[in-house]
Structures are given as C-alpha cells and as structure tokens.
Design a protein around this nucleic acid. Sequence first.
DNA 1: TAGTGGTCTAGACCACGAG
DNA 2: TCGTGGTCTAGACCACTAA
Lengths: 242, 242
Amino acid sequence: MLSNAKGSIPLYMQIKELFVANISDGRWSPGDVIPSEIQLAQDLGVSQGTVRKAITELVENNVLTRRQGRGTFVAFHDSERALFHFFHIVDNKGHKVLPESTTLSCRRKRATRTESSKLGLASGSSVVCIERMRKLDDQPTLLETITLPSEPFGELGNVGACDLPNMLYEMYEQKFGITIHNAEEQLRAVSASEREASLLDLPAGAPLLEIERIARTLDNTPVELRVSRCTTRNHHYRTTIF
Amino acid sequence: MLSNAKGSIPLYMQIKELFVANISDGRWSPGDVIPSEIQLAQDLGVSQGTVRKAITELVENNVLTRRQGRGTFVAFHDSERALFHFFHIVDNKGHKVLPESTTLSCRRKRATRTESSKLGLASGSSVVCIERMRKLDDQPTLLETITLPSEPFGELGNVGACDLPNMLYEMYEQKFGITIHNAEEQLRAVSASEREASLLDLPAGAPLLEIERIARTLDNTPVELRVSRCTTRNHHYRTTIF
DNA sequence: TAGTGGTCTAGACCACGAG
DNA sequence: TCGTGGTCTAGACCACTAA
C-alpha cells in the first residue's frame, strides 16, 4: 500500500511505480484505457491532484497518453511512433523517409560474448539473428543485423525470411507483448566490407555510419541489439539536443 | 497583461512566455535568482500553483533550475552542462572524457551560401571562422570548424589563436551574453582528406564521423554552425532515446 | 447529457538552506 | 528562525468526446 509517513517517498512517486508495475506485469496493456483520475484517486485514497501529477510525469516519459474527453491510455507503437521516435535517418532536406525492408536471413545461433553481454544474457545463450537491407527513396541505404534473445523471440528463428514485417517494434508488441520503450545508440564511422559495398552498391571501403542500438523495455531490460550500417550519400542521422 | 478570457491561452502558458521574454531580453540573466513563487503569484495576480506549473515546465526545458530552500535560478553553462549536455563523444567503455583543445586558426571571412543559410544570415555576410583540433585521452580525435556571425562575435576575429578557451559556450555566455539552449545535429560518415588524416594521425581516406551542429539560443535564433570530424577509433557518439 | 481530462484557486504542512 | 521550494488536499469551472 501507499505510505505517507515522514521520511517516505512522495505519494505521486509511489503511484508512478505502481502504474509502471501494472504495465510491466500486463495488468494494463498497450492501447488500454486506464481508470479515470477521480476513480484512481478514490481507489488509492489520495486526491485527484496527486494522481494527476503521477500521470503527468508518465505522459512525459511516453508511458501513458492523455486524450481530453476520452481518458488516459497506455502508450503503444502505432507505426508513426515506432518509426519516427526510433528511426533517425532522414534525407538531406531533413524530410522523414519511409524505409522499405528486405530480409536477407533469419536464423538461430549462439550469442557471441559481446552480444550476450550487451543483452544481459548468459554467454553462449541462444539468440535469433536477423539480417535485412532497407531502401530509402528506392536506394539501398541500410544493412541491419538484429539480435534477439531466443526467450521469448525463439519462434522467429523458424519463420520464413520474407514473413517479417517492416515495422518490427509493432510486431514485438503484438506478437510477444514486448514494448520497446527506450534505447541507447552508439555511432561510429566505419569502412564498408566488400559484401556490404556490393549490397549497398558502393565502392569497397566506402565510409558507412554504424549505429549500434540497445533497445529496452519499460523496466530497462535490454531486448534487442541492432547494428545498422548506413551509407550517408543522400541521407543522414539527425538528432536534437534540448 | 495576462488574460483569462474564455478562448484565451492558459495563464501558465502566458506566464512561461513572459519568463522566456524576461530572459531573452536580459532582464533576467543566467545565474540570477528569480523572485519567489509566492512573490510572482502576487505580482501576476494568479495563484502560486499557476506560477508553479509555468516554472515546472521551464525547469524541464533546462531554462530554469530549482534549488529547494534557496530559490529558482536562470540556468547557465557551468562547464559540467556545457560539456556533457552538448558533447556526445565518449570512450568505448562509455565514459565521458574531457577534451583538450588546440586552436589551429581563427579569422574573419565571408560566409558561403550554405553557411549563411544555415545561420539565417544574408548571403556573403561577414563571419568568424575558428578551426581547432581536440584531443581525447591525449589522442588527436576531433577537427572542428566553427562559424559564428560577426554580429556579435566579430571581435573574436582579432583574437590570437591561442586565446580561445576550451569551453566556448561558457565564453559565449560570459563575453557576449549569448546562452546556447538547444541544437540540432546531423551525422554522416565521410572519408578523411589528406590534411585531416595527417592532423589526426590516420591513413588517408580513413572513415570519419562528421557531426554538423546548428546551435540556437532560447528564442531559436541560430548562432553557431559547428562541423566536427571525428575519428571513431577509440571513441563513439552516444545518444539515448526515451 | 454525463464523464473525461485541463486549468486554476486557496491553503495546509514538510524539507531544506542560510543567517 | 525564516523564507524558499516540494507535496498534498478539496473543490470550482472549462473543453472535449461519446452516447
């Protein structure tokens, strides 16, 4: 229960934790309406303002969404969000571009040491490894290598290579109940290998932007390692610092 | 004055605008304490809660800083913030590294067309152009080309090359009253020119991470264009997506 | 029209920092 | 001890949505 003793954590913080737990445990699912602020206040024995403060902060963290007149919802990956929240490659005019994906391979294997450490797995664990090529504006631009823990993604290892959707995060949510909530990216400049160069239609050794992403759920469990190599001929990676 | 008529903008929004104007116009300067919430509420004829909501949002935008028991302050660039808020290069263990700078040149020139368009200047305007090399962990790692409008930065064109401090944003604030508040960065992979390669102690044609930054003040006026070329031998660019 | 979130108020008490 | 921000309450009214 909530405690409002002297040295204790503020009520609205405790309520945030409670809501996060409700989502992590699946009691509230992406897209669901949660009870109204007044209802929650009564249930929790606090004022509406306190519930409101908790919800406000979760909305700022993209965990919940408010819609006036309708209610408060658990955030989910419409393709809009999946795409433009996590995909930072734009064309040189700064316009967002819809990528088109071709799966090159999709198989199970044992994780390398770095893979298992980045995913927080025991070394040598079984993982699913997906390779795909993505076109932007009809030009081959990105090569992605995606590594997922076999638990719970194992069944993807049996999937035909062409059965994977363009928007993986939407699929993780719908098929596996896993919502990607935050990610950390590391960017480097590298030289294209011969294979990469030929797939991307570039001279061998051409410079590529390497983006290594670790994607995590709401409770910060890493669930996907994604290494993208991207030509920046006609596109670039864009980010904003506030 | 503030208006609370039917279709009008919420009071706390109007108060935010007012506070931002106070800062942009120099009535409140970085590091200053602003009046207390209760005082502001009385002055503005609203409740403390409304002032509080305005301040809360400005704190979230890094415009103000609250310190319990002391007051609310206009945010400023201590070296901590200047460095780690805008500088995203870390070593391969993910540790922040303090860069050490050497100014290679510092002169006035006419802006190219792209420079003037990115800085929102008339084409051919006079600008100050600074080139410097930065070492991380004693290794030459970054080459920066910084372009600033002569208005108000002109006097930097006359400065001896070695008189520039390591932390430029702190200097912009103290010498010119300009606080960098937000920035947009574009990242690309490029090949090192011969000059770049020799300065960074790399083979010619080595891949470099190019970071083009447009830095802006609180009112979104662009004031600095900075193009950095960075070897990612032992370091990388790190960003987090929430 | 009923129910939701959005804004705003007035006032209580706590936690922290400085003198 | 006093003044600051930090938390929490109780209740008013507005704006929007759906039935």
